Measured scan of single mutants.
Amino acid sequence: NDEAKKEAEKLWKNNKSEDEIKERLERAGISPDEAEQWLQELR
């Protein structure tokens, strides 16, 4: 999970869309709710 979150953070810094980041997190096995929460922390 931490690995996926690091990846999400990297994508965020590269200005990827939130949808793309969420999709990537969900593919890594993170629930949509958790993915949404993680994005809010990044904002």
Rank of each mutant, 00 (worst) to 15 (best):
N1V: 14
N1I: 14
N1L: 13
D2F: 12
D2Y: 11
D2N: 08
D2K: 11
D2Q: 11
E3Q: 10
E3P: 05
E3D: 10
E3R: 10
E3Y: 10
A4S: 06
A4I: 12
A4P: 04
A4K: 06
A4F: 08
A4D: 03
K5Y: 14
K5F: 14
K5D: 02
K5P: 01
K5V: 01
K5I: 05
K5S: 04
K6Q: 07
K6I: 07
K6Y: 05
K6E: 07
K6R: 13
E7V: 09
E7Q: 06
E7T: 07
E7P: 01
E7K: 03
E7Y: 11
A8P: 01
A8L: 07
A8I: 08
A8F: 08
E9M: 06
K10E: 14
K10C: 15
K10T: 08
K10R: 13
K10L: 14
L11D: 15
L11Q: 07
W12I: 14
W12V: 14
K13G: 13
K13T: 09
N14M: 11
N14W: 05
N14H: 04
N15D: 10
N15Q: 06
N15E: 06
N15S: 07
N15K: 10
K16G: 13
K16L: 14
K16R: 07
S17P: 09
S17R: 01
S17Q: 02
S17L: 04
E18W: 14
E18G: 03
E18T: 07
D19W: 10
D19I: 09
D19Q: 13
E20R: 02
E20Q: 07
E20T: 03
E20P: 02
E20D: 05
I21K: 01
I21N: 01
I21F: 04
I21S: 00
I21M: 02
K22C: 06
K22F: 07
E23V: 09
E23N: 07
E23R: 11
R24M: 15
R24A: 14
R24H: 15
R24I: 15
R24P: 02
R24W: 15
L25H: 00
L25N: 02
L25G: 01
L25Y: 00
L25C: 03
E26P: 00
E26N: 08
E26K: 11
E26A: 13
R27Y: 06
R27A: 12
R27H: 07
R27E: 07
R27L: 13
A28R: 11
A28M: 15
G29H: 02
G29N: 05
G29F: 01
I30M: 12
I30L: 09
I30V: 12
S31H: 09
S31M: 08
S31L: 07
S31K: 10
S31G: 08
P32L: 09
P32W: 10
P32S: 11
P32A: 11
D33V: 11
D33H: 11
D33R: 10
D33G: 08
E34G: 02
E34Y: 04
A35M: 08
A35P: 00
A35K: 01
A35L: 11
A35W: 06
E36M: 05
E36D: 09
E36Q: 04
E36C: 05
Q37C: 11
Q37L: 10
Q37K: 13
W38K: 02
W38C: 00
W38Q: 00
L39F: 06
L39G: 00
Q40G: 05
Q40V: 08
Q40R: 08
Q40E: 13
Q40I: 07
E41G: 04
L42S: 02
L42R: 04
R43C: 07
R43S: 05
R43W: 05
R43Y: 05
R43D: 04
